[in-house]
Design a protein around this nucleic acid. Structure first.
Lengths: 119, 119
DNA sequence: CTGTATCCATGCCGATACTG
DNA sequence: CAGTATCGGCATGGATACAG
């Protein structure tokens, strides 16, 4: 039962946590929270992401109704991704966690160092 | 750059999100939020977890100062795990996300069905 | 520009067996 | 009871090449 491979859980909340656990989803969502963005522009801002993972991530976010995908009939064609209200609310909910992380980050690193030197 | 394998990120928040993304960490932390628990008792409650992953997960949580490990000198020796204040606060912060998930879960599933039938 | 298809290295994690 | 050691399958995701 390894996280997101199988899902025999009765707990549907897992779906959402799995999305949050996905590194790229959070980064992309955070980026789109600042305004609409095109594919390659996202690829540049979210450093290190491959086209493949960017496409997969965007597809997931779109499937969950967190972002919308609109094709502009420019030449050459461009695609703009925009965060939805639902996506914005998730980003806000995520903010609570991020705040927690920011507040405890130093203490956690200290704990880790102590733990590592003891072992 | 797959999530938690490498970490060339300047973003330290990732560490925390990685922990949240780990399925077992959240489940174990949630369980311990209800009160102290011993190793095998946890193994029974967190259905499906292997001794290995339970040990790994608990060590991670302990390393981050989210739980404490106390050896009782009983016969046979038992080990009790207890959530710390820091762990409790993380669990609380997690609550915001869980609430969000609960509120949007139905709509998300609808979006997924729509998306899947369109493709 | 915006993706998709394929290949393959990496490493996670379940199973099993064993120790203090 | 509370773990650790080892093995191996398998999903994840990066690299590359290519298509619309």
């Amino acid at each position: 039962m390894p996280a997101r491979t199988n899902a025999p859980h009765a707990c549907p909340i897992r779906d959402v946590l799995d999305r949050v656990g996905d590194a790229w989803s959070v980064l992309v969502l955070t980026e789109l929270a600042q305004g609409p963005c095109r594919f390659n522009a996202l690829g540049r801002v979210v450093a290190g992401i491959s086209p493949r993972m960017l496409a997969v991530t965007l597809r997931h976010l779109e499937r969950d109704g967190l972002v919308t995908r609109t094709v502009l009939d420019t030449k050459p064609p461009q695609v703009e991704y925009t965060i939805t209200a639902r996506g914005t609310s998730l980003h806000a909910a995520l903010g609570g966690l991020v705040d927690w992380a920011a507040r405890h980050q130093v203490a956690i690193n200290e704990s880790r160092q102590v733990f590592d030197t003891k072992v």
